[in-house]
Design a binder for these strands. Structure first.
Lengths: 338, 338
DNA sequence: ACTTTCTATGTAAGCGTTTACATTTACAAT
DNA sequence: ATTGTAAATGTAAACGCTTACATAGAAAGT
């Protein structure tokens, strides 16, 4: 059994209060006694019991992270960065992968709250299409701890959003492709998460401001039950055969972008000469296809750093911005030539 | 502030002990009082404070997961499955991404242990090349909680290993390729983690038992500082130009396998006719290249389920096997034709 | 020498549970 | 009625820490 603060105090011939003070650096202790206590700790070893600490402090120094599926290539990255930033700030990450089932989600929320976490981070696409209702439950339940939302906007006291302006990023990407001379652009997407909708809005705005007629016909939703990229490529082929022509593709994520590359390969279209392609998320996948995929980077690392900073600020009672917006940047690779 | 067991007991007109018993189902309570208490809880709401609970029970119902980088495509999957299985077993996952720095790692271990976790899971390649020394520190520190290691073997009391027999999987893959008539096989790897070594051993064994001369010349280590797959492809080109010929590639992971596909594309070699390629891990990346990559699946989902089952068994005082070995299976796609 | 004023340390209450042990209640057997 | 027994519930200690408050000791101002 590991030693308690009491054992240490006994060996050092002081009271537990003094030991606690040394451990926390909370108030002044004479240098000589501090030294004595530290020596004892070094000699015998001591790890604080954080449950007990939590009771005293009323804080676990732990933040709950709620996300649907941390093995998703995008969410995994978010979770990783969050964990790193929380650690540096002296907090730990309690990971909860909720899956996509609402009831399960609610249970998790209760569980996570019973740990008396100091805050909650909702990782965006967790809440596909239902931000309003689902998050509401969570926010209601979490009464007093601050709730941070990554990658989705939400308005509520005590709720803070950090997000990338997907609409704007997409607007700029589409505009850039358009202005490079490619006017028939296929927009590929498959889900309408919060950011999914924003991206689509951005694409539409770009086409509208270019006064491009008929762009709506080239907005193509890929059924979610098509799992393999090969099949998505076939789906695109069918779409093209059905009379749609396009010389550019903008995809709502890198997977779909790669499917477009595959489509091009199947039809011996050269990329980017015959077909320019832009993906989204700038994930590791961009390097897996040939040619390498141009993609939009949503600054996850910066976003998460900001999120944690905001959270810590809130926990320390500071006034923090309820909403922070970053903008994405296009990382140009080999599937575009503008 | 959320209600305590004391508030509930007061409202129900019973003692806190009775409420606690109802909550835990630990010992018999008259049905009518149980009902009354449940009604109160339903009406007013109550979430247990798990720090306090931990003090009483001496257990946090929490398991620490230590891994280098949860955004790594392989580790992310492992972490996800672990979290899922732990949840079903009533435990939560405290995620610690240690990075690849030893001192940082030690700090994390102390932190995680101070949470008085009930167990520790080390996710394999965390401990690249240093399983023996690094894990020793962790195991020493964690004195009394069981330690599980995923994907690396280790012998020590109170330490349990769950792993995939990479040596055997690789042996079988290489043998199958060899017996299909491809005798000049390039073996690509870049790190020598525990499983990395095993894979290489397996490849060597296969070649030796086929009495293939000169296979050692085709064992090719890709420098770790080559980051992009495109550059790895160039590296392979150089290797080929330096006089090595091969009609098969076996890669220690899917990234390298895809680099081989890229290499083939650069030189207009058709896959699998001119060059057969096998990757490892059966990750999402296998679907990103064209043709799709044949890969070895290491049964992560099954492994993690087994790991958690073993852990729970140990925590319940049962005798559990110290080492459980699974075997991988080749998932044949389009980069092979045997 | 005698308050006053710090500074350093100790004392003890409190955090919300669990649970061994004590007590009460209910009921059956005498 | 009286006792015995089992079931239901209550009491209080323990878990390891923080911290407000109390106290002692030292330095300093008179």
């Amino acid at each position: 059994m590991s030693l308690t603060i009491y054992d240490i105090s006994e060996k050092a011939g002081v009271s537990i209060a003094t030991v606690s003070r040394v451990l926390n650096g909370s108030s002044k202790v004479k240098e000589s006694t501090r030294q004595k206590i530290m020596d004892i700790i070094d000699e015998y070893g001591y790890t604080p019991n954080s449950s007990a600490r939590a009771m005293g402090l009323k804080s676990m120094q732990t933040i709950g992270i709620l996300c649907a599926d941390s093995s998703d290539i995008f969410l995994a990255k978010a979770v990783y960065y969050l964990e790193q930033n929380l650690q540096s700030a002296g907090y730990e990450a309690l990971l909860c992968c909720t899956g996509y089932n609402l009831d399960a989600k609610k249970n998790y929320v209760n569980l996570i709250l019973s740990k008396k976490v100091d805050g909650l981070i909702l990782v965006g696409s967790n809440f596909i299409g239902e931000v309003e209702t689902e998050n509401q439950y969570i926010i209601d339940s979490s009464s007093k701890v601050p709730v941070m939302i990554l990658n989705a906007s939400y308005h509520h006291d005590n709720v803070y959003s950090i997000l990338c302006d997907d609409m704007n990023s997409m607007y700029r990407a589409a505009t850039e492709m358009y202005e490079s001379g490619i006017h028939d652009i296929l927009y590929l997407y498959n889900s309408l998460s919060y950011s999914g909708r924003k991206k689509l809005d951005g694409f539409r705005m770009a086409m509208q401001s270019q006064k491009e007629p008929g762009y709506e016909d080239l907005i193509c939703r890929v059924p979610e039950d098509i799992s393999s990229l090969e099949n998505v490529a076939d789906f695109i082929s069918d779409y093209a055969k059905a009379g749609h022509t396009f010389h550019g593709v903008i995809a709502a994520d890198d997977e779909l972008g790669i499917a477009a590359v595959k489509y091009a390969q199947k039809h011996s279209l050269s990329v980017p000469e015959d077909l320019s392609i832009i993906g989204y998320n700038n994930s590791i996948l961009t390097g897996c296809c040939t040619p390498e995929l141009t993609s939009i980077d949503n600054q996850l690392e910066i976003q998460t750093r900001c999120l944690v900073k905001t959270l810590i600020g809130v926990l320390n009672g500071q006034e923090m911005p309820q909403k922070t917006v970053f903008s994405g940047t296009m990382v140009k690779r080999k599937t575009t030539n503008f």
